[in-house]
Design a binder for these strands. Sequence first.
DNA 1: AACCGTTATGTAATTGTAAATATAACGAGA
DNA 2: TCTCGTTATATTTACAATTACATAACGGTT
Lengths: 111, 111
Amino acid sequence: MEYKIKSRIWIEVDGEILLGEGRVQLLKAIAETGSLTKAAASLSMSYKKAWSLVDAVNTRAKKPVVNTSIGGTKGGGTELTEYGRTLIQTFDNLNENCWAFLDEQLANSEL
Amino acid sequence: MEYKIKSRIWIEVDGEILLGEGRVQLLKAIAETGSLTKAAASLSMSYKKAWSLVDAVNTRAKKPVVNTSIGGTKGGGTELTEYGRTLIQTFDNLNENCWAFLDEQLANSEL
DNA sequence: AACCGTTATGTAATTGTAAATATAACGAGA
DNA sequence: TCTCGTTATATTTACAATTACATAACGGTT
């Protein structure tokens, strides 16, 4: 019966989405699995969609966010760059700060 | 080329959406037109969708947000309650405070 | 040279959401 | 009592986003 305030944040570049919660989740799955295929599967997401999301992030960010390799013993793989990791870290920080801020704001309102 | 941070906020009750930006916009249109039909049209939204949104807000809020009347010379109409107006007002305040907070947060980050 | 798991990309199929359409009820005024 | 614009609701239609499927390329290893 209580009101709860929720939010979603995202970062844009040139009016297009660079990074949001879904993409961060995907990047985290890539960091864990080392593979875009496995990351997509772990999120029950089609490979095509996962690829499109990562491609969008990679081309719009100021620096590359992932390194990919094709072929070889393991078939290839996808790994986060150092910049990719700081991007995720910063996003998570912004998000948590935002939630705390909004909770406080709502508590101070008269609803 | 610069990163910009965006956000959307909404208020939930029992895990369901009570009020978000779209619903606030609709309530504002109702306040201006005095009619759900006209409000929907002014937002290029189907009447059915508009009605569903208003109904959801009205049934989940702690107090009614609109008063409706059917029939009569003007056919009827929909008007905001006092509580509806304060709800809108508070939502807009929360939203603007959130935007300002996030802009500041992003500026203080290293992205 | 053949194999394997992966990245990369296009096309067809599906499905879930939104819109369009139809219908009923209401009530003040002419 | 008839009209008119509105609220209220169900059903059908259309569309857009997502998934599913198919195919090619890659490069260590065997």
